[in-house]
């Protein structure tokens, strides 16, 4: 399956995501620069990487969300193209309006960089199909702005619709209801602050992130 990784000025997890995608698909992903106006022909999965796109100017992800390539990503996502946003990628997807809510400065103000327990809240999504509901995995986070915010009504709706894919197993950054990862209403877009691409082979200290990519590729690659 053809995959693509979006690259913004300031992205720094783009190559980690590319390695993860290559590992599970056996094909080199296309690296797509932010100034492109179209996605490569035939792409079946787009990943928006972590990092500090545009230096986090204005708000994390705000400028990236208005870049030319994101218009193509939003258009694709609205037609059902699977899109995975990790860390800064999650911030970009909320700023682009593909996912509700916002990611604010961590409640404790510190940059948090460590392994965290992550509970799989909904295992029925194409992103979480290889996990068990309620299972706790360990994946690292590395962010300053991961404090998920949405109003109470939105949070109730998201929970009611099974849109919370992952929750932190402990308070990591002050996120509302410990939300760590969300899907859109159609289920083809996932944004998450933790980094599954940093846990795909034993040398990483664990492989808990690998199943996300394997399940996703299986779900969408047929």
């Amino acid at each position: 399956m053809k995959t693509a990784v979006i690259v913004f000025p300031g992205s720094n997890c783009d190559r980690d995501l590319a390695v993860a995608l290559r590992e599970v698909t056996g094909t080199e992903p296309a690296m797509v620069w932010h100034g492109e106006t179209d996605l490569p022909e035939g792409v079946g999965l787009v990943a928006v990487p972590g990092g500090f796109s545009y230096g986090d100017y204005l708000r994390s992800g705000a400028i990236a969300a208005r870049s030319p390539v994101m218009r193509a990503v939003v258009e694709g996502a609205n037609k059902g193209l699977p899109v995975l946003g990790v860390c800064n990628g999650f911030q970009v997807l909320t700023e682009a309006g593909l996912l509700p809510g916002a990611l604010m400065r961590n409640a404790g103000l510190n940059f948090v960089c460590r392994d965290v327990p992550l509970v799989v809240d909904n295992a029925q999504t194409s992103f979480t199909a290889r996990y068990e509901a309620g299972e706790t995995i360990r994946v690292p986070v590395a962010h300053h702005d991961g404090n998920y915010f949405a109003d109470a009504e939105t949070l109730d709706r998201l929970e009611g619709e099974g849109r919370v894919a992952f929750r932190y197993g402990e308070d990591v950054n002050g996120s509302a209801r410990n939300i760590a990862g969300l899907i859109n209403a159609a289920g083809n877009v996932l944004g998450m602050m933790p980094h599954p691409e940093r846990r795909i082979e034993g040398a990483h200290g664990g492989t808990d992130g690998r199943r996300l990519f394997e399940g996703l590729v299986e779900a969408v690659g047929a």
Binding site: L58, R59, A62, R66, E95, P100, G101, A102, F149
Partner: peptide, 9 residues
């Protein structure tokens, strides 16, 4: 609305 403010927050 489109850039300077994030009207969610």
């Amino acid at each position: 609305r489109q850039l300077l403010a994030n009207t969610v927050i």
